[in-house]
């Protein structure tokens, strides 16, 4: 991992760009996109995207389908958008990653977690929300994407100002 840190930043950006273009192009193939989430590298591009759908695509190369097996726990109303406790659990098998997205934030992708073999598919964390928004949890299980979405009303936004 640290072996790449020495490389020239511009070159790395170009390579990353090329890689994501390639992934988008291969979006229909079943196995190529799964590597995007499975590899070790920080998904810089996905975190920069504004739109939720774009971020999911950049991260996983495919779209998610809503599933009742994904349980997203978030408050109905968050008084402080700076600290919104959000957790997810799932009964799905072979979970390899879980991501959280806040649709109305300046950048939709908030956090993405890698779940190695033996780690339970249950995560609690705290996110910032700029305003009232849908929060989506994406669960990658057995190479497929499942999601759950919930609206959280925010009375005071979490982006200061």
């Amino acid at each position: 991992m640290t072996a790449t840190t020495g490389s020239h930043p511009t070159r790395r950006l170009i390579l990353q760009g090329a890689a994501s273009v390639a992934l988008l192009g291969l979006g229909n193939l079943p196995f190529a996109p799964a590597r995007a989430a499975a590899n070790d590298k920080y998904p810089e591009e996905a975190f920069k995207l504004k739109n939720e759908a774009d971020a999911i695509k950049a991260l996983y190369g495919r779209t998610a389908e809503p599933s009742e097996k994904v349980k997203l726990d978030a408050p109905e109303i968050a008084e402080n958008g700076g600290v919104v406790p959000i957790s997810v659990t799932t009964t799905l098998d072979k979970v390899t990653s879980i991501s959280f997205l806040v649709a109305e934030n300046p950048n939709a992708l908030a956090a993405s977690y890698r779940i190695p073999d033996g780690t339970l598919p249950a995560i609690a964390n705290r996110l910032k929300m700029a305003k009232t928004s849908n929060v989506t949890a994406i669960v990658e299980a057995d190479g497929k994407l499942y999601s759950a979405t919930k609206e959280v009303k925010v009375t005071v936004g979490g982006c200061g100002g």
Binding site: Y42, P43, F47, A111, Y113, I115, G118, T119, R126
Partner: peptide, 11 residues
Amino acid sequence: VFVANWGTAVS
């Protein structure tokens, strides 16, 4: 056992 990739929206 666990790897988190975070953006700026984590509190």
